[in-house]
Design a protein around this nucleic acid. Structure first.
Lengths: 193, 193
DNA sequence: CATTTTGAATATTGTAACATAAATCAAGTT
DNA sequence: AACTTGATTTATGTTACAATATTCAAAATG
């Protein structure tokens, strides 16, 4: 059988994979980076598609708080002294970060699995369980017993959890999975010192 | 002049540039990344040797605050209901994040130039100007009129400002530069919703 | 005729290869 | 003795390449 040809396939228009059909959903570029940063960069880019596993410490919210003075001042040229009296409105960290204090709790994040959305090890996130999570919200959810913080999207009555960058493949939630939304992340705090 | 040779140079041991003598000071690797991330990644890697330029909004600190109830509960197996009564101590966001309220002010960070140390656009950082900045602190400083947030190191009475990763070249502060430390960053907050 | 299988076409993606630049040293030059 | 120069070696950005993935419609199957 030297020339038994023509079996399947063949030239046709429209064949081949689509543009930007890769995991990044956009054109890519090759760059050189220091070896020690490769892991961090990939974590930043790819951002775990699976549920993040992390330890949490729950902290109950403040029971009450009191609005305090807030000075705010736009600076572009010089640095304003903190003593400047350009008072614009009041600011209290509790008030600023908590809307529904009865329904709010804090979770201390352990691990670096959420760096892609700017949440680092030992940060505390503020969770409001009274808010109905809508598309685009960052939520605290549990999937099969693992807690995760992700962007929520729902697509025709199906929940999907997206990584920081919406281009990445979502976690589709199906009936066989234990799934629960614990609340909406409304903020985060970090203590350096 | 067909064979007038031997002019300069020649084989010798020790010639050539040193290992890891490049800008990264370590071996490098080529990776492919999404185009839209190239800029951010380079910013993260190189982490501007010059002062970061960013807009700031100063926010005066709270004038007073009130300790509030804090519930804390370690979780490893199950998720505790926020209604659980495992009160361990008190927590107030102001109290948690502010030590010296008279000397503390807030700065809203504009721009992504400090992502490398986990500070994102629109975050508010808490600055304590009463604390003496010591090696290892993250400080708000101004260099020749540009504000920057960096790790501080001082080396034989010379100040140096380091990027997030200490391997990168520091900014050496010399007498010809305007330089002032405005305070020590003691925390940061972010609001998602 | 409907469904499945198959291979060509096209794109992605990690890695290797390459070209240019930078750095270093000692021989040659002045 | 100081400077110049070119070979040597490494760094670094870009291109090339190989392997994989995806998509389509022709061919095969029933």
């Amino acid at each position: 059988m030297i020339k038994n040809k023509k079996q399947h396939g063949g030239l046709r228009s429209g064949a081949g994979r689509r543009l930007n059909s890769g995991i990044y959903g956009e054109p890519t570029k090759v760059i050189r980076v220091p070896k020690s940063k490769v892991f961090d960069i990939k974590k930043y880019i790819i951002h775990s598609q699976a549920a993040n596993v992390f330890n949490i410490t729950k902290i109950k919210p403040s029971l009450s708080y009191q609005p305090l003075n807030l000075f705010e001042h736009k600076v572009s040229a010089g640095f304003p002294s903190p003593a400047d009296d350009h008072v614009e409105k009041k600011l209290d960290l509790n008030e600023y970060l908590i809307k529904q204090k009865e329904a709010t709790f804090f979770v201390r994040i352990k691990g670096d699995s959420m760096i892609g959305i700017g949440i680092h090890d030992n940060d505390i996130v503020i969770v409001d369980k009274s808010q109905k999570a809508i598309t685009g919200d960052i939520v605290l959810a549990s999937i099969d017993g693992d807690f995760t913080v992700k962007l929520l999207s729902n697509n025709k009555s199906k929940y999907r959890l997206l990584a920081a960058n919406e281009k990445y493949k979502p976690i589709e939630i199906n009936k066989s999975m234990q799934f629960e939304i614990w609340g909406v992340i409304t903020g985060s705090i970090r203590k350096f010192k």
